[in-house]
């Protein structure tokens, strides 16, 4: 179901848990599926002994992609027109993430209706790991 500009209100929110207890296996799976083999995401020896982190951490793009799943579930398929993020904190194995969209504005553009959203994803401690924005086409 597509969203409708006539029923959306500024301040409306939608959220969903996009991953529970993130597994190292998923980091490896994402590395393979995306072709991003930066060792900080999969190589425990490199990341602890060379890079000096406590352990491997998720690709920012995985956090962005999982957050994008919340967005497409909310606005519908083929509706997203813009999506931008900053990665504000690392995402670690074992983390559970909840992604949230908040309606910032509803506007008209080139005869169509657009909703502008603030996007925020937090971990199980409530710490923001992804901060961003998105826009999507909505029905009148």
């Amino acid at each position: 179901m597509a969203l409708s500009a006539s029923t959306l209100k500024v301040g409306d929110t939608y959220e969903e848990q996009v991953v529970e207890d993130l597994k190292r296996t998923q980091l490896v799976q994402y590395a393979g599926a995306s072709g991003d083999y930066n060792p900080v995401h999969t190589d425990e020896v490199f990341v602890t002994k060379v890079a000096g982190y406590p352990t491997v951490f998720a690709h920012g793009m995985l956090s962005m992609g999982m957050t994008g799943k919340m967005l497409t579930n909310y606005v519908g398929d083929g509706r997203l027109t813009q999506y931008g993020v900053r990665f504000t904190r690392q995402v670690w194995p074992g983390d559970s993430l909840t992604a949230k969209a908040t309606v910032k504005a509803i506007r008209q553009e080139e005869g169509g209706h657009i909703v502008d959203l603030d996007v925020s994803t937090v971990n199980q401690d409530g710490v923001e790991v992804v901060s961003g924005y998105a826009s999507a086409r909505v029905d009148p």
Partner: peptide, 11 residues
Amino acid sequence: MSLNAGQEIEF
């Protein structure tokens, strides 16, 4: 070292 800091995408 390098890391991805974020992106903006237009669809």
